[in-house]
């Protein structure tokens, strides 16, 4: 009997394993075709030689990366100097995405906290309301934002009418406009993970802290935040990563001066003026930057978890 039961058990396990393999197969195939293959293609293209009217010549070359980091003069015969143009675009992207992330956090955190502390029936309603604007296409939303923010737009009209300012604020074509655009584009990605974390939070911990003489602020800092940190980190990553590679908001709201890495890459593949290997190389550099940031945050998280045991 015992032996029979045991073998029956392992047979079930085998069946599960087999079923799992088959059930996971569609995901693996899709992910391989849509994620892995493009990345490998991009990696290969970044090491090829550019064709002048777009496209590539199948010949190994490091020139794309060389062009990104080094300046060898107009005819490529001078001793290499560090090329700041692209690095500064890169740096600006990190900066813009960082500010957008902080803005999202500043607005998203209280929003998420508010939703998570509503009654159980009201929470889904609030989440639904948050997502409604995002049913509209991102391009349309970004263009609308430009109209809202421009010198003769409703925002400036309003501020002048209530007498707060005398002449319109120039918001469009500034870094700030881009930050606003990015913030608006990705806000739900901040709200939703934090909401999920706060909803799981055990509020009797806050009561315990208050019972032990902690003020509201101390309770937030020492008890609530550590408990919902994973949600906050997830939200920050989900806003920061797409913001960094974004090109719609910087193109439409930032103008030529506020170029970001996403726009730079986009340019390389548009029309005949592009440089495919260079675009691919810039993409690879962006991808590795993002991976490094993700790995760093994952390691921090693992360290914190280990400390918590």
């Amino acid at each position: 009997m015992a032996a029979g039961a045991t073998s029956g058990g392992s047979a079930t396990t085998d069946t599960y394993k087999e079923a799992r393999t088959w059930l996971l197969l569609p995901s693996w195939v899709t992910l391989s075709i849509l994620v892995l293959a493009p990345v490998i293609m991009m990696l290969i293209y970044s090491f090829l030689t550019k064709e002048f009217r777009g496209g590539v010549i199948w010949e190994f070359s490091l020139s794309a990366y060389d062009q990104f980091f080094f300046d060898r003069g107009l005819f490529g015969d001078e001793p290499p100097k560090l090329e700041w143009t692209y690095i500064s675009i890169f740096w600006r992207s990190i900066w813009q995405a960082g500010v957008a992330t902080l803005l999202s956090l500043a607005i998203g955190f209280p929003t998420a906290y508010f939703i998570a502390t509503r009654s159980e029936e009201m929470r889904p309603v609030w989440v639904f309301l948050i997502t409604i604007p995002y049913w509209v296409n991102l391009l349309i939303r970004t263009v609308s934002m430009k109209f809202l923010l421009r010198d003769q737009g409703p925002l400036n009209d309003f501020l002048i009418n209530i007498g707060l300012i005398d002449s319109p604020l120039h918001i469009v074509n500034t870094n700030f406009a881009v930050q606003l655009g990015l913030f608006y584009s990705y806000l739900p990605f901040m709200v939703l993970p934090i909401y999920a974390a706060v909803e799981r939070y055990n509020f009797s911990l806050s009561e315990a802290a208050a019972d032990l003489y902690a003020s509201k602020l101390t309770t937030l800092r020492r008890v609530v935040l550590p408990a919902i940190k994973p949600g906050v980190i997830a939200g920050c990553i989900l806003v920061f990563v797409p913001s960094m590679g974004s090109f719609l908001a910087p193109d439409l709201l930032g103008g030529a001066k506020n170029f970001m890495i996403g726009s730079l890459i986009e340019e390389q593949f548009k029309g005949n003026a592009g440089n495919w290997p260079f675009g691919a190389a810039a993409s690879m550099i962006l991808l590795s930057m993002v991976l490094i940031i993700l790995m760093f945050s994952a390691r921090q998280q693992a360290k914190a978890d280990k400390a918590e045991g």
Binding site: S204, L205, E207, A208, L212, R222, V223
Partner: peptide, 12 residues
Amino acid sequence: NTVFQNYALFPH
């Protein structure tokens, strides 16, 4: 001070 039913110890 209170001893809570579910203890409410700070997990972190």
